[in-house]
């Protein structure tokens, strides 16, 4: 069985928000749109987004890590948001594991959003239906798009390619390998929701310089005569032995 998902590499995400607005841009005029904005040019502008990038600080100065953290629907394998939906508007697709909302069925009761521990669903205050990341279903299967474009908008946009997309049930996929080899993890594992989306942790490259790397025969200071050389007249073995 296929389970499509995003794997987000926090090791390279610079928090640029490209995934945020490219998502909005694709989806507002797409099958999941429109995505309304309220008070767009007024106080406290607010609107529907499927994906947001947040910033956290970990630790205390000077040992601070700044973590940029993109978050959209995680397409949980045990999605608590689905069974609670009274209308069946929220559903998880068998064929690819994408969790979707059927806007025509949704009554806008918001109950599913209560059942999502991740805050991944947002009601559209204009259309009054629940919305969320669709994994860009209207792109990834669109045969009119060239093969290389059949990817979620956010994945195509991401300048650091921090967003990987693929089938986490296929052990050979790029995403499965990334999860396996780079310590991919799920959010809030305590709830047993088994999010399909995973995150890859920060990794650090260190450089260790050994003392002996600093002492070298070809030190240019020798050429330029700045390393002290003993005077020729000073005693040496030449003076005391012969072989």
């Amino acid at each position: 069985m296929t389970q499509l998902a995003l794997v987000i590499d926090l090791n390279v995400c610079v928090g640029c928000h490209a995934c945020v607005t490219s998502c909005k841009e694709w989806n507002t005029s797409g099958e999941a749109g429109a995505m309304s904005d309220f008070r767009p040019y007024d106080a406290d502008p607010t609107g529907t987004f499927f994906n947001r990038v947040q910033t956290f600080e970990v630790g205390e100065f000077p040992n601070t890590e700044t973590v940029h953290f993109p978050k959209s629907c995680l397409h949980c394998e045990e999605p608590p948001c689905v069974p609670v939906c009274p209308t069946g508007a929220s559903y998880k697709r068998k064929e690819d594991g994408i969790v979707l909302v059927d806007y025509d069925k949704c009554i806008g009761c918001k109950y599913c959003s209560w059942a999502c521990p991740y805050g991944a669903r947002e009601i559209d205050e204009k259309q009054k239906v629940m919305k969320k990341c669709t994994l860009c279903v209207d792109r990834i299967y669109d045969k009119t798009l060239p093969e290389r474009d059949r990817k979620p908008a956010c994945v195509m946009a991401c300048p650091t390619s921090a967003r990987l997309f693929g089938d986490i049930h296929d052990p050979e996929s790029e995403v499965s390998k990334a999860i396996r080899e780079q310590g991919g993890y799920a959010l809030m594992p305590e709830w047993g929701t088994h999010p399909a989306n995973h995150y890859l942790p920060r990794r650090k490259t260190q450089l260790r310089i050994h003392e002996d790397e600093l002492v070298r025969a070809d030190n240019p200071l020798k050429i330029d005569g700045k390393l002290p050389k003993p005077a020729k007249q000073e005693p040496s073995l030449d003076d005391v032995t012969s072989w």
Partner: peptide
Amino acid sequence: HPRIAQKAQGAMGGSF
């Protein structure tokens, strides 16, 4: 880590 603090949630005018 025992010390984590959010600085930005990605939307300043509020959200759902």
